[in-house]
């Protein structure tokens, strides 16, 4: 085997160790998220109580507080990371983020309307159901506005229009909110958090997210082909119309349901694919799963930081990811500038 051939062989399997490493890291972060919290918890005792079905206090803390928080952090982070990677691949733009086509704006509006109407307290799943309905409506509206056979630019324009419309309606709901307490609740929810979520919410969104992930992962070869432009991708046998449907449908399911449960959490979907791209040789298809696990690790990590910081009331997760993400964008601009 020549040196070249060896380099080619290791280069091609090069993203597997990264994928393995990041999936391991995300599992470790989820475990750390179980262990770290406000109350001291003997995790072993709590787990054995929970497994035996004893309703002890540690078991309740574990099952009702820690597990939903860690599990939702994992799946929401995974959704944001993989969708960000797919969006950047579809739009061939490193600045695309999961919500660019309007799904997270729609989900946020749906949840806010549930708050506004007072339904939030009526039953446990009202809020996520409202968010999911918002995301679906935004997606239907997107394709209705952009029309059949819409190109990428039309989709972005329609997405921006939907995002700003949803944003306007959200602020309208705040403006007209019946009492300051309701407005407060909406604002805090919009900041995004994993605190005080429950297992039924996880069971509601998990199947939807899983379908979304599967749709996104199935686009990997087409996203690779799209590296050569739309004409060449089509000449390689990919149906671009179907590709757009899959990516946007997958984004709506994955990110729409994430936002419906956690509120809006920015920057994870933008930053994670960007950081990991060089390690998969810039291949958009290889970036998908890697970004999913990277997103899960980052979100869980940020959520652990939130709990370790001696700041009260607890910082909202969306605030922390934005605080980490924005300087990253500045550094990106700086690097970009010096490359010219």
């Amino acid at each position: 085997m020549s040196a070249d051939a060896i380099r080619v062989a290791t280069g091609r399997s090069g993203s597997l160790p990264l994928l393995f490493g990041l999936s391991l890291l995300s599992v470790l972060m989820a475990l750390a998220s179980l262990v770290i919290g406000y109350a001291r918890l003997d995790i072993v005792a709590a787990a054995s109580d929970a497994l035996r079905g004893t309703h002890s206090l540690p078991a309740l803390v574990l099952l009702e507080l820690r597990v939903p928080r860690a599990a939702l952090g994992f799946v929401a982070g995974f959704s944001l990371g993989i969708t960000g990677a797919a969006m950047q691949g579809l739009l061939r733009n490193p600045l695309a983020e999961p919500g660019i086509v309007g799904v997270s704006g729609g989900a946020a509006l749906g949840a806010v309307l549930v708050f506004y109407s007072g339904l939030a307290g009526a039953f446990l799943l009202a809020l996520p159901l409202g968010g999911i309905a918002g995301a679906i409506l935004a997606t239907v509206l997107l394709f209705a506005v952009a029309g059949r056979g819409a190109g990428t630019t039309t989709l972005i324009l329609a997405g921006i229009a939907i995002n700003s419309f949803a944003g306007a309606l959200t602020t309208l709901a705040l403006n007209l909110s019946p009492n300051p307490y309701a407005a407060f609740e909406i604002i805090f929810w919009l900041m995004g958090s994993l605190a005080d979520r429950s297992l039924p919410q996880l069971w509601l969104v998990l199947p939807l997210m899983a379908i979304g992930w599967a749709l996104l992962v199935s686009t990997a070869p087409a996203l690779d082909g799209l590296t050569l432009g739309e004409d060449t991708a089509a000449s390689l046998g990919f149906d671009l119309q179907k590709l757009r449907l899959k990516v946007i449908g997958g984004a709506a399911l994955a990110v729409g349901s994430a936002v419906a449960v956690t509120g809006t959490i920015g920057f994870v979907g933008l930053v994670v694919p960007h950081l990991l791209r060089p390690y998969v040789g810039n291949r958009p298809g290889r970036l998908l799963l890697v970004s999913g696990f990277g997103g899960a690790s980052l979100l869980l990590g940020a959520d652990i930081v939130v709990r370790l910081l001696p700041i009260h009331p607890e910082l909202k997760l969306g605030v922390v990811t934005a605080l980490i993400g924005a300087p990253f964008l500045f550094s990106l601009v700086y690097r970009h500038r010096s490359e010219r």
């Binding site: 280069g11 050569l228 000449s235 390689l236 810039n282």
Partner: peptide, 24 residues
């Protein structure tokens, strides 16, 4: 099909790029 002034959107390595021809 070989497009006119073919653009490549991401900085791919040459062997990875050529391998895209095997996608079909």
């Amino acid at each position: 099909y070989l497009a006119q002034n073919g653009r490549v959107e991401w900085s791919l390595r040459v062997d990875h790029l050529v391998a895209l021809g095997r996608l079909p």
